[in-house]
Design a protein around this nucleic acid. Structure first.
Lengths: 276, 276
DNA sequence: ACAAAAGTGTTGGATTTACACCCATGA
DNA sequence: TCATGGGTGTAAATCCAACACTTTTGT
């Protein structure tokens, strides 16, 4: 352990930091590392998937983890998350003020929660501000050019503590650190938020059909919805969808109207998630 | 500025902190101070109020601020918030796992959001994990024995950027730091959460009447509710309230049944907040 | 012609609202 | 007796789930 910056050192523990004067006295407060971790969700092949990166170094070497990195000395938390997102996926999400939901270039980014248990990283005291990203279906992820060190995985698979091997040769090992918990919290947030907000459109391309939007709800909630009532509901909610004029038959069947996301962010009345 | 720990110093900016090996290398990551700030809400005299403490030192000397303090080196975030709460109010709220809502000794504590804009504290780089506390009406707050350095203030008054002087001689100055934003976020969270959860009971004493619970909703939402429909709604929602057997006439009029909070945390169907 | 997906109409039941009305106490 | 808050009944309006049925394409 070095003299300063290590756990267990003795600091002047003034509870009311607000009453302190000295501007920069490192001995007066315990230093933490602050990082951002990203829960990046998308809907692929009718399943809710999250972005995972493979760890190349200990601890948890070889295990899957959420993407993330340090917050820089002069960077806001949301900006750090947006930067990491670009670096890991090429996705551009506009940085909102910390807890403001906001759509950027298709993707939605918001702060999720902060995780700071003392032993969550065995190397040092790390406080991680997790962020949630909802993105449309993307090409295979790049991670520093290295393929197969990053992938989209169904969240059920990543959270499955039991067996449940993926179709591939992937192992059912839990995620590194407390990332399973973070991912579960992010998934829960997404599930409840599409109920009363228009966020489900963040999973869709710029133009989409009502059926495509319905399949997003079905994948995120893991339920089947009545296509007819769903159609009435979403087209009848003011500000949710605006027709873009075109039609498509990319799903087969009768041509479907194309829509864009409307201006409304809060849905009133909300979408109803079927019981159990 | 001292050599290390100050803004603008140059660190090895590895984006992927997960790939680093060295356990405790302070030059490898930028150190932050991590604090918790508390939004403590209660309902007093038919108004939603928040706990504010007066700052005795610069910056923002003499201004009102939210209570808070440093996270200790071996302390979890929720534990730090619970500790600060006890120190400032004597209230006991059980520490939940980070984002888990949980009731302790009457009060509810949950993580709210994290604020880390680079210039939010002029002294140093501080990341503050804000927590939300919902408490029943309390005796006058104590703050280190010093009265009049802590008070309950109506949130409207604390958030009013314009005039709107309080009844007292209090000034309409905005809160210190970014605490107005934090308070506003906390209030918004409380307003929306009592809609679909049983959290409104956290504002009530252990035993309360339906009318008292209704006045909580009215104060938090700032609306008037129909007492008759409200009664049917809350008593008809399974798990929300359980009769404690007793009655009271402390509100005058016909004796009212006393209830305790039931086991349910999520309300289905939710309470409906009247439009506009 | 047939399958598949999009969309409209209709109906019965549940929920919500608005308000009339009665109940039990203290002053 | 009156004022005050507690609590029940009821009818109209609204919302929602279920499903029959029509439309428009590709094969």
């Amino acid at each position: 352990m070095t003299a300063e910056g290590s756990r267990g050192a003795v600091y002047r523990q003034e509870d009311d930091y607000d009453r302190r004067m000295s501007p920069y006295d490192p001995s007066a407060y315990p230093p933490f590392a602050v990082t951002v971790d990203l829960v990046v969700l998308t809907v692929r092949r009718h399943a809710l998937c999250a972005l995972a990166v493979r760890r190349g170094e200990p601890p948890f070497q070889g295990r899957w983890a959420l993407p993330g990195g340090f917050v820089r000395p002069d960077e806001d938390l949301g900006a750090a998350a947006a930067r990491e997102l670009v670096e890991e996926t090429g996705l551009c999400a506009h940085d909102p003020g910390t807890p403001l939901p906001e759509a950027g270039n298709g993707a939605h980014l918001e702060q999720l929660a902060t995780y700071g248990a003392p032993e969550r990283d065995p190397r040092m005291r790390v406080v991680s501000v997790a962020h949630l990203v909802l993105a449309p279906d993307l090409p295979a992820p790049r991670a520093g050019g290295d393929a197969n060190s990053a992938r989209w995985a169904p969240v059920d698979e990543l959270l499955d503590q039991e067996g449940g091997f993926g179709r591939e040769e992937e192992q059912p090992v839990p995620l590194a650190f407390d990332h399973a918990r973070i991912l579960a919290d992010g998934v829960e947030r997404a599930r409840s938020k599409i109920e009363y907000s228009s966020l489900a459109t963040a999973f869709c391309p710029p133009e989409f059909t009502v059926g495509e939007l319905r399949r997003v709800y079905e994948a995120v909630w893991g339920v089947a919805l009545d296509p007819r009532n769903f159609h009435r509901k979403v087209t009848g909610t003011p500000g949710f969808l605006v027709p873009s004029g075109g039609t498509t038959t990319r799903q087969g069947g009768r041509p479907a109207q194309l829509f864009r996301a409307g201006g409304a962010t809060l849905l009133n009345p909300p979408m109803l998630r079927p019981e159990v």
